[in-house]
């Protein structure tokens, strides 16, 4: 099916093309910082996409999603410290550890709802934060430097910036595809149904708890993958990756971009991080602008940027009779 040529789809398409072509531009302009920035943006966009699966579609307001960034990162970092550089071991461990943590947290947290759910997911993330802060062997509070990136088979070399960028981008596109398929499947319908009315889902014979738990684990695992990428990108992992304000950042990306659309979080991540860069270039005190801006988005732009684009497109079309 060919997507309709609306304003929103044009912007999304342009964003994708820009992400694909960015290394070419960076090469020509010899701008290495731009590559570093956008690799980070893509990795965090992956984390935001994973959060959106439970937050936007499942209505599960997890305030501890950054924990999986840390778990994925520490899996890579700890194995590297013990001399295991092989990515085929590191990454599955990162994914497995994140999935296991998500399974435990989800199984317990999904018994509660509302604010209690927000707070219990936060509590588990804080526990993970304190655990890694306390392990002196892996750097404790100071964090852990990773001297060698994950090793894969021959031509793939993560230390090559361009290769690493495209690997991250491919994984992001893969994740978007996966979330899209999931959301439109029967499984996705059940979790979206449970978001709007849990009781009704039970009444028609579903057990939303199990569906939600599976979604929670998938989201955690995907975010753990983002964590493994992030650790490879920064060659460093520290407890601050999983501090609660980082979970807040991820929520901002999802809501800013547009909750409950598959691409929204990507738009949100790009906007937030580019905005941070631009604002911090204008003034040292950039958060004094970003803070109220967030409040304004909450108050006046409920569908996020994605929603705004759709509305704007509608208005343009109606203004121009065809």
């Amino acid at each position: 099916m060919m997507p309709a040529l609306t304003l929103r789809n044009i912007v999304v398409g342009a964003l994708m093309v820009a992400l694909i072509l960015l290394p070419v531009y960076a090469q020509l302009a010899d701008d290495r910082f731009l590559m570093t920035l956008f690799t980070r943006i893509i990795i965090l966009a992956l984390a935001a996409v994973s959060l959106n699966l439970i937050l936007g579609f499942g209505g599960m307001m997890s305030f501890g999603h950054a924990a999986y960034l840390g778990i994925g990162g520490y899996a890579v970092g700890m194995l590297a410290k013990e001399g295991i550089m092989n990515g085929f071991i590191q990454w599955p461990v990162a994914l497995g550890a994140s999935a296991l943590f998500a399974l435990i947290v989800g199984a317990l947290s999904l018994r509660t709802r509302g604010v209690y759910f927000i707070m219990i997911t936060l509590a588990f993330a804080q526990m993970a934060y304190y655990v890694v802060s306390g392990i002196a062997r892996y750097g404790g509070d100071d964090g852990l430097t990773i001297y060698k990136r994950s090793q894969f088979f021959e031509p793939l070399n993560l230390s090559n910036k361009t290769q690493f960028y495209y690997l991250c981008l491919a994984i992001l596109f893969g994740a978007i595809y996966l979330v899209r398929r999931l959301v439109n499947s029967r499984f996705g319908m059940v979790i979206q149904g449970a978001r709007s009315n849990d009781v009704r889902m039970r009444a028609i014979g579903f057990s939303p708890y199990r569906y939600k738990l599976v979604a929670f684990v998938i989201a955690g695992t995907l975010c753990g993958l983002a964590g493994a990428l992030l650790a490879n990108h920064t060659d460093f992992v520290s407890p601050s990756v999983m501090y609660w304000t980082r979970s807040g950042d991820l929520i901002i990306m999802v809501v800013l971009g547009g909750m409950g659309t598959v691409i929204g979080p990507v738009i949100g991540a790009v906007t937030l991080l580019v905005l941070e860069e631009v604002l911090s270039g204008i003034t040292e005190y950039w958060q004094i602008i970003l803070g109220p801006l967030l409040l304004l988005v909450v108050l006046f732009a409920r569908g996020g940027i994605d929603g705004l684009l759709t509305q704007l497109g509608e208005r343009l079309r109606r203004g121009r009779p065809s």
């Binding site: 305030f63 005190y285 950039w286 970003l290 109220p292 967030l294 409040l295």
Partner: peptide
């Protein structure tokens, strides 16, 4: 203006306030 809104809106809006106050 946030009363009666979703908890998610509260979290996000007041998170913005934290950034504002810290920087102020």
């Amino acid at each position: 203006r946030l009363y009666g809104r979703d908890h998610l809106d509260h979290v996000l809006g007041t998170f913005g306030l934290i950034l504002f106050f810290d920087e102020a």
